[in-house]
Amino acid sequence: MKFRILVIDDSPTMRGLVTAALEPAGFEIHQAQDGVNGLDRLAAADPHLVITDINMPRLDGFGVIQGIRTGATNASVPILVLTTEAGGDLKDRARRSGATGWIVKPFDEARLISTINLVLGV
């Protein structure tokens, strides 16, 4: 079975990079271009993992995490935050919102995959 990953990022470049890194590793990638779109697609994509950016139009990453955690479906899906930020406050805030992990851009492909495998318990 392929693991499905929902990538939420307003930057097509970043979505492309994540997709390019993960598809060859055997993941099925779904994309959303902002927080609202991410929540909209959640049920349909039914992902095993969500990777979200923080700074996005309409609904930011914290809102996404909160929305997922309090939502009707997939509330318990692991969520990795992928962002350029590395500030302790933000990490703390993301953690308290319900994020599972934090990955800093630019990411190393191998470490991204190993992190995902860890979270997915592969």
Partner: peptide, 10 residues
Amino acid sequence: VPLDLSLPFA
């Protein structure tokens, strides 16, 4: 801070 990969939270 310098960009790096850190996971999960401290």
